[in-house]
Design a protein around this nucleic acid. Structure first.
Length: 427
RNA sequence: GUGGCCGUAGCUCAACAGGUAGAGCACCGGAUUGUGACUCCGGAGGUAGCGGGUUCAAGACCCGUCGGCCACCCCA
């Protein structure tokens, strides 16, 4: 094998897998369309400062996971590690925030991490962002939209919704201080990671996987008790709306998100079918981010879903996407036959643009070409040889069980190719 | 960044106190005239990830390195 291979964690998605991706992408686009969201296409590279200012300087993403480099002018650029920052930047820059906006985007994101199941360095997210609406009906819409998507994909049974409110900045600050003060007293008993996070990102300790740490937290201050009145009211309303819509959820008071810009409502759709990577879709409010990035104060909510993880879930659930690529395979032996086949099939493509017709290339015997026809998965073979050339005709042969009864094999004049083919392929 | 397991044909995998490699699938060809699938026969395909070391001899043992998978961390 050559020594020039793909970069670690940046995978090829092969023809075997793309039908599943296309099914997912089609469904996502259709659901978002059904709620009136507009697609926005964003650059993959942005100025490094954008991510530092939005995601947060002390997050793992910014500290050690970004693909950052200087361009030829010496300016620091970064391959986007997530989509919200760029979307907010575009919304501000393009003057889109004078009225509420519902937007979505899809594409590759980049994070320098060790690859494992459901995680790679180049991965794909579809993100949804809503600007200009501060009320919890907006939060509910996003969640209800997700639920519809899972239903359409057949994933309802394997994902579960967790929600929480992390309050406004003041409430979080107050809680953070109380939490740090409490944990300081139990420093010895905390796991090593949590000790480290105590100074960098104490809220993250809440979802530590260590049972000992969780036990300590049980007796500590809870975020809920520090929430501001508005956050509490909005959260209650969100629950009410979800109940009415029949969307089941679990209130997880220890749910916090890793990115600095979140406030108030946060949510996560999780699964237990993907090994260590439980989160399949997650988001929340970020009412302060637009202003923080230089726009006028604008409330916003959004979420992103991990496409690789959803593809894995679909596969795990046995969801089958139609993988066939060919309806008709054209066999032609001899140069006159090849010529007649080319002309005739081009004419068929003209009148039946929806038909997927693969013309054999590269010569070979009838036998070898028929093998290719069978392997292609086509339902029908069109056959040209010396006899057909002389007779100005074409042989049509069914290759599949069910179709065999309709027509096994027959030779018809060229003029009848179109009508005969349609009759054989009719559902 | 840390840890565990792994790296033999295109793919999935074997073998053997250490004696220079094999199967299945896939691929190509054939089983009398121009026809696929099932069957049968034949063929091609590997500098054993790479580099060192031990040995008369290494794919097998040791070291390093690169890569893969899974987990930690973190996140979608």
């Amino acid at each position: 094998m050559s020594d020039i291979i793909a970069i670690r964690g940046m995978n090829d998605i092969l023809p075997d897998e793309t039908p599943c991706w296309q099914l997912l992408e089609r469904t996502v686009a259709a659901v978002l369309g059904a709620y009136g969201y507009g697609e926005i296409r964003l650059p993959v590279v942005e100025k490094t400062a954008l991510f530092k200012r939005s995601i947060g300087e002390v997050t793992d993403i910014v500290e050690k996971e970004m693909y950052t480099f200087d361009d030829r002018n010496g300016e620091s650029m970064t391959l986007r590690p997530e989509g919200t920052a760029g979307c907010v930047r575009a919304a501000i820059q393009q003057g889109m925030l004078n009225t509420p906006r519902r937007l979505w985007y899809a594409g590759p994101m980049f994070r320098y991490e060790r690859p494992q199941k459901g995680r790679q360095r180049q991965f794909h997210q579809t993100g949804v962002e809503s600007f200009g609406i501060s009320t919890p009906d907006m939060d509910a819409e996003l969640i209800v939209l997700c639920a519809r998507l899972w239903r359409q994909l057949g994933l309802t049974d394997c994902v579960a919704l967790q929600i929480n409110s992390i309050g406004n900045a003041d409430a979080r600050k107050a809680y953070r201080d109380a939490l740090v003060a409490y944990l300081q007293e139990h420093l010895e008993a905390l796991d090593a990671d949590s000790q480290r996070r105590l100074h960098s990102n104490p809220l993250r300790i809440l979802d530590s996987k260590s049972p000992e740490t969780q036990a300590i937290l049980d007796n500590g201050p809870t975020l809920k008790d520090f929430l501001d009145e508005e956050s509490n009211a909005d959260f209650a309303r969100l629950c009410e709306l979800l109940d009415a819509a029949g969307v089941a959820y679990l209130v997880n008071r220890r749910l916090v998100r890793g990115l600095d810009y979140y406030n108030k409502t946060v949510f996560e759709w999780v699964t237990d079918r993907l090994g260590a990577q439980g989160t399949v879709c997650a988001g929340g409010r970020y009412d302060g981010l637009v202003q923080q990035l230089g726009g006028k104060s604008t409330p916003a909510v959004g979420f992103a879903m991990g496409m690789e993880r959803l593809v894995l879930l679909l596969a795990e659930q046995g969801v089958e996407a139609d993988a066939s690529t060919v309806d008709v395979y054209v066999v032609a032996v001899g140069s006159d036959a090849e010529l007649m086949a080319l002309v005739a099939t081009e004419r068929v493509r003209e009148t039946n643009p929806q038909l997927r017709i693969m013309q054999h290339a590269g010569g070979g015997s009838f036998k070898s070409q028929m093998k290719k026809a069978d392997k292609s998965g086509a339902r029908v073979a069109l056959i040209w040889g010396e006899d057909e050339v002389v007779a100005q005709a074409v042989t049509i042969k069914s290759l599949r069980e069910g179709d065999g009864e309709r027509l096994q094999q027959s030779t018809v004049p060229l003029e009848e190719l179109d009508s005969t083919l349609c009759a054989v392929l009719a559902p």
